[in-house]
């Protein structure tokens, strides 16, 4: 194997090991069922692999992983929501020793965020992970001030939906 291919392979393996939880969480929040989750995750990983050569280290690697994961999920989530299939997804994600109440609350979180449109959902997921506003703006393609105002509106929507 050539040196640069070996380096790429090593970088890919390190990257996926380090950010596997992040990738899984984003795919989980966009997936409608287990098949969709597996498809999205596969697509994200392929895009990471193919994009690694062009990643020029100008941004943080974590920012780039967010970008690839969110872009993939935003653009390629097609299937209509089937909340009954979310049970299958949850059963595969959650540990068996989780309390019923805990699982109920996690499902409630999923269903609440799922009601946002796909771009607002990305914004909220980045905010939940405490990504700095500058990085959110760079990932979404908006200014820092715009991030703040859009986040405020998205949070208001979430609060309204949670209380309704």
């Amino acid at each position: 194997m050539k040196v640069n291919e070996a380096q790429k392979r090593e970088q890919f393996e390190q990257c996926t090991a380090q950010y596997s939880t992040l990738i899984n969480k984003i795919c989980y929040m966009y997936a409608s069922d287990m098949d969709n989750f597996n498809d999205l995750r596969q697509e994200v990983l392929i895009n990471v692999w193919q994009g690694l050569e062009g990643f020029e280290n100008r941004a943080k690697l974590s920012t780039w992983i967010y970008r690839v994961s969110l872009n993939t999920c935003i653009s390629f989530t097609n299937k209509e929501r089937k909340y009954s299939s979310h049970d299958e997804l949850s059963d595969n994600i959650y540990s068996y020793d989780d309390s019923q109440e805990h699982m109920r609350q996690l499902k409630e979180m999923y269903q609440l965020i799922d009601r946002l449109n796909r771009l607002d959902k990305a914004l909220i997921l980045l905010w939940l992970d405490e990504v700095p506003y500058e990085e959110i703006g760079s990932i979404m393609g908006i200014s820092r001030n715009n991030v703040a105002s859009r986040l405020r509106r998205a949070k208001e929507k979430l609060t309204l939906m949670a209380n309704s």
């Binding site: 994009g51 062009g54 690839v68 969110l70 872009n71 993939t72 990932i139 979404m140 393609g141």
Partner: peptide, 9 residues
């Protein structure tokens, strides 16, 4: 996918 913003993508 790897270079565009979310909106561009």
């Amino acid at each position: 996918i790897s270079k565009a913003t979310a909106v561009e993508s």
